[in-house]
């Protein structure tokens, strides 16, 4: 289990991680946030690459900067180190000098990905290179894997191949934390989402729980309706969009909220629209941003 308590990391005047508290236990966790939200910094703090300014990170109860904690974690950055001129074997040889790796598993995954073994990894395409390092990460004997922007710039076929290997690793008891701003890539993969915004956890929850606070509907009103009209009913409007005569609205609420809107404005047509995971995470990030803005204004 990875426990993060009131973590702060500053780069000059910028608070990249700002009082973040979270815990990651077994399974696959999606760390989602916009660029610059503090995801990569958080992963580096967990891996012991950075030293925190305040707070602490515990890996199975051991401070993250201890060698014993580091042995339990492997962090794969978005731009991993490729030894000069090394092929897949040479890359393995380099990382074997520093990490405990299941060599057979590495070879198995490389074979499953169908990667060439005699070419220098540096000459590989971005997707192929990513596959080599995902194979390396998944073959690590470390119990907790931190994958930064694991699916960035990859095509859906490669993403699917990588996903199945990640699921297999999680089934073998590993905790896999995947950071991404590509929400689509994390769909049907993660057990839990943690949404990071401006250096702290904005929202978190299980795949099933997440997004249950939102309700989306589309409606056609006989008279002009705007965001304020709906907000006047006491709802918090997260998204309000009008396409032609159809209004697409997302509220913080439930089905009863739709009934209340129907009662108040007597629309010509109104129906509940289910949210897909990508939309939910986007809405969570939007909400986090609004909360942040609201907090700043209050201050």
């Amino acid at each position: 289990m990875i426990e993060i308590k009131s973590l702060v990391k500053c780069f000059g005047p910028t608070r990249a991680v700002d009082g973040l508290t979270a815990s990651f236990s077994n399974g696959i966790i999606g760390l989602v946030g916009q660029n610059g939200a503090g995801k990569s910094t958080l992963l580096r703090l967990i891996a012991g690459v950075y030293h925190p300014d305040e707070g602490e990170v515990l890996v199975d109860g051991i401070p993250a900067n201890d060698a014993a904690a580091k042995a339990k974690v492997f962090f794969l950055s978005d731009d991993p180190y490729t030894p000069k001129g090394a092929d897949v074997e040479g890359t393995l040889d380099f990382y074997l000098g520093l990490f405990d790796i299941d060599v057979d598993n590495y070879h198995r995954i490389i074979k499953a990905f169908g990667l060439p073994t005699k070419r220098a990894v540096a000459t590989f395409s971005k997707g192929m290179k990513r596959q080599v390092f995902i194979a390396l990460a998944l073959a690590m004997k470390a119990e907790h894997l931190l994958l930064d922007e694991a699916f960035d710039g990859l095509d859906p076929l490669i993403i699917d191949a990588i996903k199945s290997e990640i699921i297999s690793a999680a089934e073998h008891g590993k905790t896999v934390v995947i950071s991404s701003h590509n929400i689509f890539a994390l769909q049907r993969l993660v057990d839990r989402f943690v949404i990071v915004s401006k250096g702290h956890v904005a929202r978190e929850g299980n795949n099933e729980d997440i997004g249950t606070e939102f309700v989306k509907f589309q409606a056609v009103f006989s008279s002009p309706i705007n965001e304020e009209n709906i907000a006047s009913l006491g709802f918090r409007v997260i998204s309000f969009r009008k396409v032609g005569s159809v209004h697409h609205v997302v509220l913080l609420g439930n089905n009863e909220s739709i009934e209340a809107v129907q009662k108040a404005f007597n629309p010509v047509f109104i129906e509940h629209v289910p949210l897909d995971p990508q939309e939910i995470v986007a809405l969570e990030m939007m909400l986090a941003k609004k909360d942040q803005k609201g907090g700043e204004e209050d201050a």
Binding site: A47, A67, K70, V73, S77, Y81, L98, F99
Partner: peptide
């Protein structure tokens, strides 16, 4: 001197001083 190699060396199961 490179972020990539620091990511590798600093997360290995030894203290950076080692």
């Amino acid at each position: 001197t490179r972020r990539q190699s620091v990511d590798v060396f600093y997360q290995a199961a030894y203290a950076p001083t080692t």
